[in-house]
Design a protein around this nucleic acid. Structure first.
Lengths: 185, 185
DNA sequence: TGTACATCAGTGAACGCGCGTTCACTGATGTAC
DNA sequence: TGTACATCAGTGAACGCGCGTTCACTGATGTAC
């Protein structure tokens, strides 16, 4: 894969390589650090090659976000499979995902609904991840009050942590404190 | 103020005018739409005039964010003054602020702790607003588990609403549903 | 098995863009005497 | 009350930048015969 791939006119899997490069740029320098040109550079390809695979920059970002929702869904599914209380399991997985990949998490939720709606793959991935969380909380499909409350709680905790609003506090300790079962709010 | 201000070499209150212009740009087109040059244009001043009042672009954004935290604090103070349960009052004011000024809310929390720490006024304003919420929830200074849980809940709800993750649902209805007192989470 | 050709993933030069920022400057203001 | 001068808020030209995107193109691939 390595040497045989290099120096070839056809890349082989440029689409995946571009998504990976964009994801790395995002993790390294935030949303502002992502550009089509730099992603192309990292994939070892000319700056116009990306246009064979993505209509424009937004389409590449949408692909990265969609991949993120798939990963998030997988992380929650793994947590669900090991049983235990929903919030401490699936909810904690949600927060941990954000802590691990803060820039990606921000991209996924911060692009705006308009962008998501414009990319069917992204929309589907987002909906699937959302339903994995809310379905597990409320016990049935659809998003009821309990599900929204749980979602808001884990989403808020994740956001506050990655935006540095809870400095000096260990994420795992925060997860344990905030998500443990409680008598009342 | 209006005509007499126009056509004068000295603007009179350019600093405030630039902050207002940047705030408007933010509300109109999001973070990407804010530029020093456009803010200067809107204030009716040459593109280099802002440098008499702000060291660089980040300083202007920091001023906008600081103003936002002051406004948020004021909104929560007003809610606290009218009594009632903490979450339904102060918490709801927090969410309403975000819904009213989504781009500003994102700027305030999304710039990163490093930027906040770099600007003393902003840091102070953020801390004051934070303590108004957490202090009211926990009943004492400092940020305990109850305060963080409440903060996460309102911050998460605000974020999900403004990012379009709860489409077709009235913000006020969501506030009522999520923040009403409950027996258990 | 060999060849013609359609397809499509790549190239590289070029465009126009608005931006942040620096520079040497000039006009207005207010204060010391 | 009048004048000299320091201060500082403005100006406008210019810089270099990386970016997204378009264009006409070329090289590699694989399929039909």
């Amino acid at each position: 894969m390595s040497t045989s791939m290099r120096d070839r006119y056809h890349h082989g899997d440029l689409r995946s390589a571009l998504i990976a490069a964009a994801r790395d740029l995002l993790d390294e320098g935030g949303a502002g650090a992502v550009s089509l040109r730099e992603a192309a550079r990292r994939a070892g390809v000319s700056q116009t090659a990306p246009y064979r695979h993505f209509a424009d920059k937004e389409a590449l970002l949408a692909a990265v976000a969609a991949e993120g929702f798939v990963d998030l869904g997988a992380a929650m599914a793994a947590a669900a499979a090991s049983g235990g209380p929903v919030l401490e399991g699936i909810g904690a997985a949600y927060v941990r995902f954000a802590v691990r990949q803060p820039a990606r998490f921000r991209l996924m939720f911060g692009q705006g609904a308009a962008v998501i709606a414009r990319h069917p793959d992204l929309l589907a991935a987002a909906k699937a991840a959302e339903e994995r969380l809310t379905g597990a909380v409320s016990g049935r499909p659809g998003v009821d009050a309990t599900a929204i409350r749980a979602w808001a709680l884990v989403h808020g905790l994740a956001s506050l942590i990655i935006d540095g609003m809870l400095p000096g506090q260990d994420p795992e300790a925060l997860i344990a404190t905030v998500l443990q079962p409680r008598p009342a709010l």
